[in-house]
Every structure is written in structure tokens, then in C-alpha cells.
Amino acid sequence: MKAFGIILIVVGILMLIFTNINFTTEEKVVDAGPIEINKKENKSIGWPTWAGGVAVVAGVALAVAGRKR
């Protein structure tokens, strides 16, 4: 339980630092013999800042509860 708490603390801190992740996907639109047309699309995954704070608080609570046992 203590290890899971530490993991939650680290993930929560990373969520507070990086509020979203951007990445690019490539999709084949047309593939007709020698002709190939690809489409690149930028996507992002975002989360609220408070979610990182909740993860840190939950991780601290789990780490403290794991130490008392």
C-alpha cells in the first residue's frame, strides 16, 4: 500500500507539471497502387489541474496509512 501511495504521489506531481499531452497520429486516406495519401492529425489529452492535487493527497494518505501498520 505504501508503494502504491508513492506511485500516486509521483503521478500527481507529473499531472500538476504537465497539464496535457500532445501527439500526432497518421492515417492512410487513399492507397491506390503507387498513389498513397496520408493525413496527419494533432491530438491532445488534457486533465484538470485539481486531479493532480487529488492524486498527490491520496498518495500521501496511502503512504502514511501504510507506514502505521
Rank of each mutant, 00 (worst) to 15 (best):
38 N>C: 01
22 N>M: 02
7 I>F: 12
48 P>T: 13
28 K>I: 09
25 T>L: 11
25 T>G: 08
21 I>A: 12
50 W>D: 12
19 T>R: 13
29 V>Y: 06
6 I>V: 10
62 L>A: 10
12 G>M: 04
23 F>G: 01
58 A>R: 03
47 W>S: 13
57 V>C: 07
5 G>V: 00
59 G>M: 00
5 G>A: 04
48 P>V: 11
18 F>T: 07
26 E>A: 10
69 R>I: 06
49 T>A: 14
15 M>H: 04
41 E>H: 03
37 I>G: 04
38 N>G: 08
16 L>R: 05
59 G>S: 04
1 M>Y: 10
26 E>D: 02
55 A>G: 06
64 V>N: 05
61 A>Y: 09
3 A>F: 09
33 G>R: 08
22 N>E: 09
9 I>Y: 01
26 E>L: 08
16 L>M: 15
17 I>Q: 04
61 A>Q: 05
55 A>T: 06
58 A>N: 02
26 E>K: 13
37 I>M: 07
26 E>H: 10
6 I>H: 05
65 A>M: 11
20 N>I: 01
37 I>T: 06
26 E>V: 10
7 I>D: 03
13 I>N: 03
30 V>A: 11
34 P>S: 15
27 E>W: 08
62 L>T: 00
2 K>R: 12
20 N>M: 10
61 A>C: 10
37 I>R: 07
67 R>E: 14
36 E>I: 11
35 I>Q: 08
21 I>W: 08
41 E>L: 06
58 A>E: 02
12 G>Q: 01
47 W>Q: 12
32 A>V: 14
60 V>Q: 00
56 V>K: 05
34 P>F: 15
39 K>C: 00
66 G>K: 04
51 A>F: 11
43 K>D: 07
20 N>H: 14
49 T>Q: 14
54 V>N: 06
45 I>E: 04
52 G>V: 07
1 M>W: 05
30 V>K: 09
40 K>P: 01
21 I>D: 05
4 F>H: 09
37 I>P: 04
39 K>H: 07
19 T>E: 13
28 K>N: 12
18 F>W: 10
13 I>D: 04
43 K>G: 06
25 T>N: 06
13 I>P: 01
51 A>T: 13
45 I>S: 07
49 T>R: 14
32 A>S: 15
45 I>Y: 09
59 G>T: 01
14 L>V: 15
24 T>N: 09
14 L>Y: 11
47 W>G: 12
52 G>F: 04
7 I>T: 09
56 V>Q: 02
69 R>H: 13
62 L>Y: 09
1 M>I: 10
13 I>V: 15
23 F>L: 03
29 V>F: 07
27 E>R: 09
19 T>Q: 14
28 K>V: 11
34 P>D: 14
67 R>V: 14
